[in-house]
């Protein structure tokens, strides 16, 4: 979706302000919001792409006004409610008022290290051949899905070069919808700064994105 999460190239946010000796978390509630989000993914049985969509799927003004973990927390509440795991009246009162919905799994302390160690690899086997090879010229398609996508607006319609064929990976646009992993070939595509930002842009800059095959079309 063309939401406020797609920030590349926007102006007006001011300088980047690094915080010296920054702590990992800035408040106790951030610790809780972080860990609850990780732990709830098991009973919630949602995938990473659904999580990302739940975070970005809100009015732009709201997204930009929220802190990072506020966005995480809002998405967590939304996903729990959508799946009927938690109800509005429970959130209002701060207690469980209804019987729990049966869930397949929860995260036990003994599993934490293993779950983190395993992570979530997204590469999948395929028999299909990759359409592009390193060095091919490609154009990022002009697409504007209202659902989740990982093709940022600033490269749409721009021409770049395949730098690397990465492998066949879970396709977020499908996975976020619960429509299956639908693995697709993934490429690192390099764009020159001037192609993205115009003739006055710094000629020493190049930017790459990792783009799935359905995002790309050949350039003759």
């Amino acid at each position: 979706m063309n939401g406020a999460q797609d920030l590349g190239g926007m102006h007006g946010f001011g300088p980047v302000v690094p915080e010296p000796n920054e702590p990992v978390f800035h408040a106790e509630w951030e610790r809780r919001a972080f860990a609850l989000t990780l732990a709830a993914a098991m009973p919630g049985d949602w995938n990473l792409d659904m999580t990302r969509f739940a975070r970005e799927n809100r009015p732009p003004a709201e997204y930009l006004a929220m802190s990072y973990y506020q966005v995480w927390f809002a998405a967590l509440e939304a996903m729990l409610k959508e799946r009927g795991l938690v109800a509005d009246d429970e959130i209002d009162t701060g207690h469980s008022l209804h019987p729990p919905k049966p869930v397949a799994r929860t995260l036990s302390p003994g599993d934490v290290a293993q779950v983190l160690h395993r992570g979530a690899p997204t590469e999948r086997e395929t028999k299909r051949a990759a359409k592009f090879k390193a060095g091919d010229k490609v154009r990022a398609k002009t697409i504007n899905p209202v659902t989740h996508t990982r093709l940022p607006r600033y490269v749409r319609g721009r021409t770049g070069t395949i730098e690397r064929v990465i492998g066949c990976h879970v396709f977020p646009d499908s996975n976020a919808l619960g429509a299956g992993e639908n693995p697709q070939w993934l490429y690192t595509v390099r764009f020159e700064g001037r192609e993205l930002w115009g003739g006055n842009a710094d000629p020493t800059v190049a930017v790459s994105v990792d783009a799935w095959e359905p995002y790309l079309e050949p350039v003759a």
Binding site: A39, A40, G94, H95, V112
Partner: peptide
Amino acid sequence: MQLRTRALETILLEKGYIEPAAIDLLIET
């Protein structure tokens, strides 16, 4: 936010969706 996160954590605990020691371990890690 402190109250809201605590409220949600309480609900998830009462429903048995999360285990407190796993939450602590994630934070510590």
